[in-house]
Simulated assay, not measured.
Amino acid sequence: MARARKRVRATRRAADGSAFQNCDTCGESVAIALADMHECEEPKKEVKRFRGFCGVLKSNYVGEESAADQPRSAFCFFMESFLRNREGVHSIDVEREGFETWKNMSVEERQPYIIQERKIDSVYREALLREINDASEVMYDS
């Protein structure tokens, strides 16, 4: 019995037989297989690097909802107040100290942060349900 042969797709090649070609616009050597995804930019832009979070939470959403209303854990609420009490000193050592403090806290000491977490979470869930209901009404009105 004859064995079926597998089809092999050949790699695209430039006119000179190489797997790279020079871009007409910028002159950069680009792999032919990726040439359609190559974007030329005359001035090379510097990569913006994330330098960490500091400052007040800002909303990523358009509208009246703010990032302060987003659900967070009780530990996040604790760390926000912990760092607020040590204003001006923001380092990894302060964060470690806050983590150790949280770890050594009793359930009663954590309770205010847990209550705050549940309150924000319930408000967020209610807003989501309202949004779902509004969206379903719009869909059915059409």
Rank of each mutant, 00 (worst) to 15 (best):
R3I: 14
R3E: 11
A4R: 15
A4K: 13
A4M: 13
R5F: 03
K6M: 02
R7Q: 09
R7H: 07
R7M: 13
A10T: 13
A10E: 15
A10I: 15
T11F: 07
R13G: 00
R13T: 10
A14K: 00
A14P: 00
A14F: 04
A14G: 01
A15N: 05
S18N: 05
S18T: 15
A19D: 08
A19M: 10
F20P: 01
Q21R: 04
T25H: 14
T25G: 05
T25R: 12
G27F: 03
E28A: 09
E28T: 14
V30S: 02
V30D: 03
I32C: 02
L34H: 04
A35N: 03
A35P: 00
A35G: 00
M37F: 14
M37N: 10
M37G: 01
H38L: 05
H38N: 03
H38T: 06
E39L: 06
C40Q: 07
E41C: 04
P43L: 09
P43F: 04
K44G: 02
R49N: 08
R51I: 13
R51T: 10
G52C: 03
G52E: 06
G52P: 03
F53Q: 13
C54E: 15
C54H: 15
C54P: 00
G55F: 06
L57S: 08
S59P: 09
S59H: 01
N60P: 12
V62H: 04
E64A: 11
E64K: 09
E64I: 09
S66Y: 12
A67G: 05
D69H: 09
D69F: 08
Q70L: 13
P71H: 06
R72F: 01
A74Y: 05
A74P: 08
C76R: 03
C76H: 07
F77K: 03
F77L: 08
F78N: 01
M79D: 00
M79Q: 06
F82N: 04
F82G: 01
L83G: 06
E87F: 07
G88A: 07
G88M: 05
V89L: 09
H90G: 01
H90W: 01
H90K: 07
S91C: 14
D93M: 10
D93S: 11
V94Q: 04
V94H: 02
E95H: 07
F99N: 10
W102H: 09
W102Y: 11
K103S: 09
K103D: 10
M105D: 01
S106A: 07
V107W: 10
E109P: 03
Q111T: 00
Q111I: 02
Y113H: 02
I114L: 14
Q116T: 11
Q116C: 10
R118F: 07
R118K: 15
R118V: 10
K119C: 05
K119S: 14
I120N: 06
S122A: 13
S122L: 13
Y124F: 15
R125P: 00
E126F: 05
A127P: 03
R130H: 14
R130T: 12
R130M: 12
E131D: 10
I132A: 12
I132W: 12
N133R: 15
D134S: 14
A135H: 10
A135W: 11
A135Q: 11
S136I: 12
S136G: 00
E137W: 04
V138M: 13
M139P: 00
Y140T: 02
Y140H: 01
Y140N: 07
Y140E: 09
S142G: 14
S142K: 03
